[in-house]
Computed example of a mutant assay.
Amino acid sequence: MARPVTLYTLQWGDLPLETVCQKAKEFGYDGVELGLPNHVDVRQTDPAYYQGILDLLAKYDLKLYAISTHLIGQAVCDKIDSRHQAILPDYIWGDGDPEGIHQRAAEELIRTAQAAKMLGVNTVVGFTGSPIWAYLYSFPPVTEQMIEDGYQEFARRFLPILDEYQKLGIRYALEVHPTEIAFDTISAQRALEALGNHPAFGFNYDPSHLGYQGVDYVDFIYHFSDRIFHVHMKDVYWSDTPKQVGVFGGHVTFGDPRRYWNFRSLGRGCINFEEIIRALNAIGYQGPLSVEWEDSAMNREHGARESCEFVKQIDFQPSAHAFDACFEKK
């Protein structure tokens, strides 16, 4: 049986959840990945609230496999500034005091695990933020101690969250991504080590963020075969000729044609999804393939529909036996 194909709802956060469900069903999706805070309010404690969400999904014959808290998770470890006010709910931002924001975001992540339990899913996808992302380019020179201190701060803030996740039987899947504590294979390994390989911590695999950096995004699957908790299907294009704007983005907006790279609808970029499916088969991943649709130059409904079709066409299950087994004499 093919893996379920789901639609991540954060890019549709301007619409009511029922409208998103109607569209997801029409586009051909098997389920959704609900994006917080727009489509789930984890401050709710009444089981009836969560049953109402499940009933709504059932109305459109959609399944739920994960919920995601990228925006809130970003505030747990980031160096907070005015940018965060635009992405955080007022009750997390509060008076804007950074330490208060860190604490409220951490509490919200724990409530998110409790909400996941109520919704019957065992995976929360999200970000962590990073206290050391500003040190990406080592000038003025960045010392190893500065980087180590950043990973220790990450561990200090996230280990109590992960302990609560483990108690609830919920996993936290960090989307490896620039601006996070883990943004490539080496930094992902270091994040795991900083946490003592905590069993509740793993990764949401998204090849797009690795591809444009020049990271081997297929090898990442094999390297973390037991830590791939969830998969985002997202494509990206990068140029094979010099551009005016390089890999760091040149302070121009997504979609600007002068950029070296831009996200694109699935199948229209440079990611080799054939090799990704084969690698996921090799490690035994049977979870959802969740479409996180982003393409600044395309109508999102057109893109979401064609991306669903693309994933269902490219996905396949591994063989149950060697292809040449039929050659053998009985």
Rank of each mutant, 00 (worst) to 15 (best):
residue 74 Q to P: 00
residue 320 A to P: 07
residue 111 R to Q: 15
residue 55 D to L: 15
residue 79 K to N: 11
residue 230 H to D: 07
residue 254 F to A: 14
residue 39 H to T: 08
residue 41 D to Q: 01
residue 282 A to F: 13
residue 148 E to D: 12
residue 276 I to A: 03
residue 249 G to R: 06
residue 266 L to A: 11
residue 96 G to A: 10
residue 13 G to A: 14
residue 116 A to E: 08
residue 123 T to G: 03
residue 225 S to H: 11
residue 170 I to G: 10
residue 300 R to W: 15
residue 103 Q to V: 05
residue 208 S to M: 15
residue 202 G to R: 00
residue 295 D to N: 10
residue 130 S to G: 05
residue 297 A to D: 14
residue 111 R to V: 05
residue 189 Q to A: 03
residue 60 Y to Q: 06
residue 213 Q to L: 15
residue 136 L to I: 13
residue 323 F to D: 13
residue 200 A to N: 03
residue 30 D to V: 08
residue 200 A to F: 12
residue 144 E to I: 01
residue 299 N to Q: 04
residue 16 P to V: 00
residue 199 P to Q: 07
residue 61 D to R: 13
residue 234 K to W: 10
residue 300 R to G: 02
residue 313 Q to F: 14
residue 301 E to L: 11
residue 245 V to N: 00
residue 195 L to E: 04
residue 233 M to W: 14
residue 215 V to W: 13
residue 143 T to V: 01
residue 163 D to R: 14
residue 265 S to L: 02
residue 314 I to T: 02
residue 312 K to Q: 09
residue 64 L to Q: 13
residue 201 F to P: 00
residue 17 L to T: 09
residue 43 R to I: 09
residue 141 P to M: 06
residue 81 D to Y: 05
residue 6 T to N: 09
residue 236 V to E: 03
residue 88 L to M: 03
residue 300 R to S: 02
residue 184 D to S: 05
residue 29 Y to K: 01
residue 25 K to H: 15
